[in-house]
Design a protein around this nucleic acid. Structure first.
Lengths: 125, 125
DNA sequence: TTGGATATACGAAATCTATCGTAGATATTT
DNA sequence: AAATATCTACGATAGATTTCGTATATCCAA
């Protein structure tokens, strides 16, 4: 079972993850804040996502309700693995350092990461 | 100018980055170590990459020489930005923690990251 | 209850991606 | 020089992705 949403599908999934459960119109209105798209385009994409098993839907009411069938964490893991193998030669530390280098992390964020690293150390020992 | 190599193009770019400069055959032999592909398929892809401006080539000799027109670092930056916005809600620290959490980093790698973080701290202060 | 708004279903077109066969040019080997 | 190998160019196809128009069903309001 391979989870590999397309670009457009990921845009839609972001909305679904944020709302937990939503209608085609919910998604469409969110999408049209940042880009142009016809309503039936969004609908069609969501139907395809359902065919692919990326989402489930409740069709009891006239207006269907969609939910994601996998978590954002799983998508994150997939995305990381993919770019690790395609552009980071498999080096996690390269990736982390690049990420920290180009996006100013806040002090809080840095602390969070440090804590994480320390805890990680202890587990290893 | 938008750098957005496809999946197959990235496989090829990896070889070009590693070798610095190479022929279609170089790339093809490297690719066939891990997957099946006809020679003309690789050739065509590299021609398309040239059309798109992803690579340049020296055609003085019969066998052309290809070079990348952007660095692996740029590709890394692009890839990071993309997944940051599509699956990490823009949170670099989420990304870093996920990356560290799922791929056991070696002690050396962890040290490298810690050093990086410390140096980063000082710059901020 | 009739018209307008809103929903889904479906089909089809446009584009992008990946793959490969064939043709023709150029080099290499015998 | 002839046969063989290697290279690029080109065209075509298959499949995936994205987009949207039209048809049809359902709800709601005047």
């Amino acid at each position: 079972m391979d989870i590999k949403p397309t670009e457009s599908e990921l845009e839609i999934l972001q909305v679904i993850w944020k709302m937990g459960q939503c209608t085609v119109r919910d998604v469409h209105e969110e999408l049209t804040k940042t880009k142009d798209a016809g309503y039936t385009t969004t609908l069609k994409l969501m139907q395809i996502m359902h065919d692919k098993g990326l989402v489930e839907r409740d069709t009891t009411a006239k207006t269907h309700l969609y939910k994601a069938l996998f978590s954002q964490e799983q998508a994150q893991s997939n995305a990381l693995n993919k770019i690790l193998s395609t552009v980071f030669k498999g080096s996690t530390s390269d990736l982390v350092i690049q990420a920290l280098g180009q996006h100013r992390a806040s002090a809080d964020e840095i602390d969070a990461i440090k804590n994480f690293l320390n805890q990680f150390d202890q587990h290893k020992k």
